[in-house]
Amino acid sequence: MVKVLFVCLGNICRSPMAEAVFRSQVNEAGLADRIEVDSAGTGDWHIGKPPHEGTRQILKQYGIDDAGMFARQVSKNDFQDFQYIIAMDDMNVKDLAQWFPEDRKVEVKKMLDFVPKHAGGNVPDPYYTGNFQEVYEMIDEGCQRLLQVIREEQGLN
């Protein structure tokens, strides 16, 4: 089983959006039995809360299910359990460093590293900007390209 973890600051806007979008794409590709998806936040402010209303609205607009999703915080075990950890911005990558175990098996990458026109960029936080549509478009494209990479690297057809 290939395991993918999306990470943002509070786990209520960007990372749950990426989790839901990616899970939908994995299901459409017929790979739900081969790829497991989760999300987490670097902060603990929203633990146990559902995704932000703006995230839920944009997912509903695109017919993507967010049922059963609740915020959680990253743990050191995540670095052993997941083969792909995808952060939304530079600060998330920096914050994740506090959880890096010395024997970690995974390299943290940013979502937009998979989108050539935005390579190296950051997914803006709609909690502050309010632009859930822009974030959805970035995440949708990033997830599509991430799925291609995983299929190639893991030999999934």
Rank of each mutant, 00 (worst) to 15 (best):
L9G: 10
G10T: 06
G10M: 01
C13G: 03
C13N: 10
S15M: 04
P16T: 08
M17S: 04
E19F: 07
V21C: 11
R23W: 05
S24T: 02
Q25F: 08
N27D: 11
E28W: 00
L31V: 06
A32Q: 14
A32I: 06
D33W: 01
D33Y: 01
I35R: 01
E36A: 13
V37R: 01
S39P: 01
A40T: 09
G41K: 07
D44Q: 03
D44A: 14
D44V: 07
W45V: 05
W45R: 09
H46I: 02
H46L: 03
H46S: 08
I47T: 04
G48E: 02
G48M: 01
K49D: 11
P51M: 04
H52E: 15
E53W: 00
G54M: 02
T55V: 08
R56I: 14
Q57T: 11
L59M: 13
K60M: 05
K60E: 15
K60Q: 15
Q61T: 14
Q61D: 12
Q61S: 09
Y62M: 01
I64T: 02
I64S: 06
D65H: 05
D65C: 08
D66L: 01
A67H: 10
G68E: 06
F70R: 13
F70A: 14
R72L: 02
Q73H: 05
K76F: 04
K76I: 13
D81E: 13
F82W: 10
F82N: 09
Q83F: 04
Q83H: 09
Y84D: 08
Y84P: 05
I86G: 00
I86S: 03
D89Y: 01
D89A: 10
M91C: 06
V93C: 09
V93G: 06
A97L: 04
Q98F: 12
Q98I: 14
W99Q: 03
W99E: 04
F100E: 14
F100H: 15
P101H: 12
E102A: 11
E102R: 12
D103T: 05
K105S: 12
V106W: 12
E107T: 15
V108F: 10
K110Q: 14
M111S: 02
L112N: 01
D113M: 13
F114M: 06
V115Q: 04
P116M: 09
P116R: 04
K117S: 14
K117L: 03
K117T: 14
A119W: 06
G121D: 07
N122R: 06
V123M: 12
P126L: 09
P126W: 02
Y127F: 15
Y127I: 08
Y128K: 07
Y128S: 09
T129Q: 07
G130Y: 11
N131E: 15
Q133D: 14
E134Y: 12
E134H: 12
V135I: 08
